[in-house]
Design a binder for these strands. Structure first.
Length: 200
DNA sequence: AGCACGATTAACT
DNA sequence: GTTAATCGTGCTC
């Protein structure tokens, strides 16, 4: 039993609301039997085919088909010839929306994460979408896995609530060629934890 | 078949 | 601030 796994209905709301509620939750990868985990600190919302920054803008393809499926699954894509990025599918089946996980605070499996990210200092271990997937050993083999399944190697558990006061809304990153209004939508959510925030 | 580019990162001037 | 790394994807020919 792992009653802390977020249920599917957590992912059913509007994608921006899910992106907000994911802040403070715990991303967990069971990597060859070891628990690697981090607290989610930054997310971005991508809202369906009309959102010209969303991979679903071109319609359903082999690459993005998971986004068109049921909520609570992982959409993991390959980019720039070398990086993997992790998303959580949201909303009703057939509506292609997802939340990109952009930053986590590592809390479990620190030794393994440190080894994988030894080229950079600790604050930069997991402060980017491709940094955290590399740190946690997440890649395309996990594309489509059910984040709500007790037996899944990749899950998200309930964490601590983060007050609105600690959260900034900012424009999304890396979409400079996308037309307005999509380019400037403040759909990147960043949590600033106080220095004395408890780790576990 | 060929092409331009990407929801990025790390290293370098 | 600038740029190389490195290849799948979607589009054009």
């Amino acid at each position: 039993m792992s009653p802390d796994i977020l249920p599917r209905n957590f992912y059913l709301g509007p994608v921006l609301q899910v992106a907000r509620n994911l802040l403070g939750m715990r991303l967990v990868h069971y990597d060859q039997g070891e628990r690697l985990a981090g607290i989610i600190l930054e997310t971005e919302a991508y809202d369906g085919q009309q959102d010209l920054a969303c991979h679903a803008r071109v319609g359903k393809t082999r690459r993005n088909e998971v986004m068109f499926g049921p909520a609570g699954h992982a959409y993991i894509y390959f980019t720039y010839g070398m990086h993997w990025c992790l998303n959580c599918v949201t909303g009703e089946e057939g509506y292609a929306a997802a939340v990109l996980i952009r930053s986590i605070l590592p809390v479990e499996g620190i030794a393994t994460i440190a080894k994988r990210r030894s080229k950079v200092e600790r604050p930069e271990w997991c402060n980017g979408p491709a940094k955290l997937t590399h740190a946690l050993g997440i890649d395309g083999q996990l594309n489509g896995v059910d984040l709500c399944d007790i037996n899944s190697p990749l899950i998200i558990e309930k964490g601590d609530d983060i007050p609105d006061q600690w959260i900034q809304s900012l424009p999304r990153v890396g979409i400079n060629s996308v037309p307005e209004p999509w380019r400037s939508k403040p759909w990147r959510l960043h949590a600033n934890l106080p220095p004395d925030w408890e780790k576990t």
